[in-house]
Amino acid sequence: MAESSARPGTGASASIMAHSIAFGGTLPVRPMIRPLAASPPSALEGRAREARTQTGMALEGDLAGLMAAAQRGDAASYRALLKACLPVVAGIARAQGVRGDAVDDVVQDTLMTVHHARASYDPTRPFLPWLRAITQRRAIDRLRRTARRPQEVYDPLAYEAEVDPTPAPNAGLEARERDAALARAVAALPDGQRQAVEHLGLRELSLDETAALTGRTKGALKVNLHRALKALRTNLMRGEE
């Protein structure tokens, strides 16, 4: 078993890695968009296409040989086959619309399916269509699972810090009580401080206007306002306690 399987597992694996690099995982990907107007291919393009075709056929033959050896139980060939399949599977998954980390999930799912279904591969048939069918199905399964999953962001801190823009049910009552307490505290102030608070703080008049109305100097109004605010703060905090 080891002698028969060593043949495709040594030279073939090296050539496969070269093919994989050459194709960059895009060999089995069908073009999504065709050019609108197909221009006649130049000789250079024709040679390049011929070279790609020959390389693809060689890759196909190598992979089929490795898979046949893997069916016989050759672990080295199987390891080389799976590693060669990685970029191919990722390319097919991307062509199916899988993005980001999900590509790696599809690669993992596909490798598992390839392992379980390796008896269903017919060595007389090409390998890449078999692999492509499995990969496309696993990619579709992944896309369906992603689509079914509700797109929610789990952030408990943001949920707790969310501010309710609507007023609280007792907001009006509290505001009325606060206004009444403030009115009582202002009324309890001495006349000079009360006038300073009423004109400068509540009515938002200027110092000149307030001085003209009350007949006090601007310096006296500032001192009265400062003392009034200090007294109000003390009284209201005492009332809350």
Partner: peptide, 16 residues
């Protein structure tokens, strides 16, 4: 890791 695991538990199979 997955490739090594799958290759490690490979058993011969008869093609269908």
């Amino acid at each position: 890791r997955l490739v090594e695991e799958l290759a490690g538990r490979l058993e011969p199979v008869r093609p269908l």
